[in-house]
Amino acid sequence: MTWKQVFTSSVGKKLVMAFTGIFLILFLIVHAGLNACIWANDGGEMFNKGAHFMGANVVPRILEIGLFVGLILHIVQGLMLELDNRKKRSVGYAVAYSDGSKWYSRSMGILGTLILLFLVLHLSDFWFPNRAHQNFVLGEEIDLYAKMKETFSVLWVVIVYVLGCLSLGYHLAHGFQSAFRTVGVHNRKYNLMLVSLGLGFSVIVTLLFALMPLSFYFGWIN
């Protein structure tokens, strides 16, 4: 069983999705936690400190490379799996089977694609201008808080962000527990726990992220 055989098998590909998925879930916790600093209501001071730590420190920046590797693996493998899986049924059904599974469980590819499109916008809003300002090294950063405030003053951007967060939420609602199943958690008691934990996580993360643009737009924070 070579590594190549392992990771090109259907189960191996899924393992890649699960491991990168769990890694991205961890990232989301950090990301949401840091961003929540905007609600400190201190004109972005605490938030910018956190952002500065992430952007100007060598360790987080190395981790950032890891994050992108994980993200790209998750995206590429996910899209390939989706396309591959679709090819397995050349003639479709006249009546679709829909009550055996949740719509979002069946739509991970589409949800993922939506998230990807959202990510392009999101990165070009914040990450890219910031890193460009830094000349892609550890240089001085822009005022990200001010940038947020500016970005989220436009209605359509806010709507797109909220929709992006919703896609992420449904993606997580399936992805969270699915990732753990894929790495082999099969005991009933853990599975039950992971399902509730996953749903709770998806709701909280979605709410947190969606509230950010809304908070700026409606002026809930100064």
Binding site: V11, K14, L81, K88, G100, S101, S105
Partner: peptide, 16 residues
Amino acid sequence: DKEGFGACTNTGACEA
């Protein structure tokens, strides 16, 4: 895999 079945995405339709 060789037979041409797809990969599992844990939707649960099979169990149902």
